[in-house]
Amino acid sequence: MGRITVDDLKKIKEKHQATFKLREGGNRAKVTVHMGTCGIAAGARAVMDALIDEMAAKEVKDVILTTSGCAGFCVKEPMATVEIVGEAPVKYCSLNADKMRKVLNEHVIGGNVVEEYALVVGSETSY
């Protein structure tokens, strides 16, 4: 896409809001690995790699895998957020490759929150 207009801005907003809310595109879930400096320093890359490999191995195709910045709770990094369509986001903390694989298999694929690694459910307040 080249130069855009104000109308285009609104179109992009609508289109991507849909993916944000996972309403369109046939995706079932989204996993966000928090990769700010703190997350990376704590080992977020290994977590990300494990996730990519495990998703390939299990041939998971309907899950969006993405990265984002620091989740704010630096002392509990590496963190990841799992969002299943129609459910509240769950934040996992103090992850490593093994824990991430388990979260993928049990929560993202199996539908059961991995309580022992989960920190909190929901989204932050912003108004």
Binding site: T32, H34, T66, T67, S68, G69, C70, A71, G72, F73, M79, T81, A88, V90, N112, V113, E115, A118, L119, V120, V121, G122, S123, E124, T125, S126, Y127
Partner: peptide, 28 residues
């Protein structure tokens, strides 16, 4: 499941995000 909600954890429920509103939410 037994995971607490944001509203029940002071670390989250006392914060209001404005400058940080996109933190951890969008792909930068």
């Amino acid at each position: 499941h037994a995971v607490p909600a944001m509203k029940d954890i002071p670390f989250f429920n006392l914060q209001v995000l404005r400058a940080l509103r996109n933190k951890g939410l969008i792909d930068p």
